[in-house]
Amino acid sequence: MKITFKIWRQEGPNDKGGFQSYEVNDLTEDMSFLEALDHLNEILVLKNKKVVAFEYDCREGICGQCGVFINGRAHGPHDNMTTCQLHMRSFEDGATITVEPWRARSFPIIKDLIVNRSAFDRIIENGAFISAKTGTAPEANAILISKTVSDRAMDAAACIGCGACVATCKNSSAALFTSAKINHLNGLPQGAPEAHQRVLDMTAQMEKEGFGHCSFTGACEVECPEGISIVNIAEMNARFIKAKIFG
């Protein structure tokens, strides 16, 4: 396959970036998108040029480290998929593919396609836990949880923290990310004692980090690799009101 990559290059957070085009001729359809970028980087090295910096780790759609904008969509042309799961067979031979980093004020660019998502860690730090020290747990089957409740918690807990929801949202809102974590923990009996404080702390941190508000466009749920539903945001809002009144 012959592909022209039009890639955002930016040396550092304070540099003015820009697109550069690279033509690659010997790609195959069964290469993953990131393997195609690996291949481009090998070509660049041999031409004595600096490689394109991009993120990845597990390459099986679970670690959440990869993620770029491909032809104007987070994680590329398919719904509910990570960048590393995208394969070149999804593109036409001869196509031009535009590749950009996540763009959101709360995710500053570090270099090329790499952004800083530590704002997510700080949201987690502020309440996304159950305060139980190692060694204090009761017998596991002493807490009965219905399958329905457990399955709903699992649906929300599946979030991989990639940031596609923020990147695709016109408001750069982190509402889907934050709500998924709140609903995972607040939906379980173990999370109940800290439920109200958790909602208040995590949403406060979300605002402090500069993420925008949710206006329910639904774009996040389309791009979410785990298919986490926007219903989570409505549920978080309900929990927020409850916490304000009873918390």
Partner: peptide, 22 residues
């Protein structure tokens, strides 16, 4: 065995039977 207790307490949504057990 105590490790499963620990993770359950931490909110890991392990698969469950309809009756609520693991």
């Amino acid at each position: 065995a105590p490790l499963i207790d620990h993770y359950t307490q931490q909110g890991v949504p392990f698969a469950r039977e309809y009756g609520g057990t693991l």
